[in-house]
């Protein structure tokens, strides 16, 4: 099943329905050992996640990306309301992005609504400002990884 994607100014909304109960879906975002199973994109051959899953707690994701090397992402949890909502912000190369994930119960399924702020304008501008297409590609991969770590 594919996701529903909407762009609203500098916000990105991605909605996906998973055929699983809400507590189970939530656990895949809340537990490091589960999160790192799906948080790597196809170019990452190693991904580890350390997380202090509480409001004000931080997370650290390290990954080895093909042709790029190790990349690290740090973020902080702003809101946690199990199993309904998670919000965090992360610093990506000087750009702050804020991500809100909502888990909505729909019978035996769960609708996940992810809202990302800081996209596309300001953030992509900073990506482009990195200059070469090589670094652009690197940041592209980084963001993909970061997105997956949410």
């Amino acid at each position: 099943m594919s996701s529903e994607i909407k762009k609203d100014g500098n916000r990105l909304h991605i909605t996906r329905v998973f055929q699983a109960p809400r507590p189970l879906v939530f656990s895949y975002w809340a537990q490091a050992e589960k999160l790192q199973q799906w948080s790597g994109c196809k170019d990452a051959h190693s991904c580890t996640v350390e997380m202090d899953f509480r409001v004000g707690g931080s997370f650290l994701q390290k990954m080895q990306i093909k042709n790029v090397g190790e990349f690290t992402i740090r973020g902080t949890y702003d809101e946690i309301l199990a199993p309904e909502r998670i919000a965090y912000h992360a610093d990506l190369g000087g750009a702050i992005t804020r991500v809100i994930i909502e888990f909505i119960e729909e019978g035996v399924s769960t609708r996940v609504v992810l809202t990302q702020e800081g996209l596309p304008d300001e953030f992509s501008c900073q990506m482009v400002s990195q200059g070469t297409s090589e670094s652009f590609d690197k940041l592209d991969l980084t963001l993909t990884q970061q997105a997956a770590s949410a």
Partner: peptide, 25 residues
Amino acid sequence: EAQKWIETYIAGWETSFDVLDQLLK
């Protein structure tokens, strides 16, 4: 290039969600 980056970024979410979908199933 910026537009392409955004498209790739969105595709990254899709790929990750596909993996999560399989894990949940």
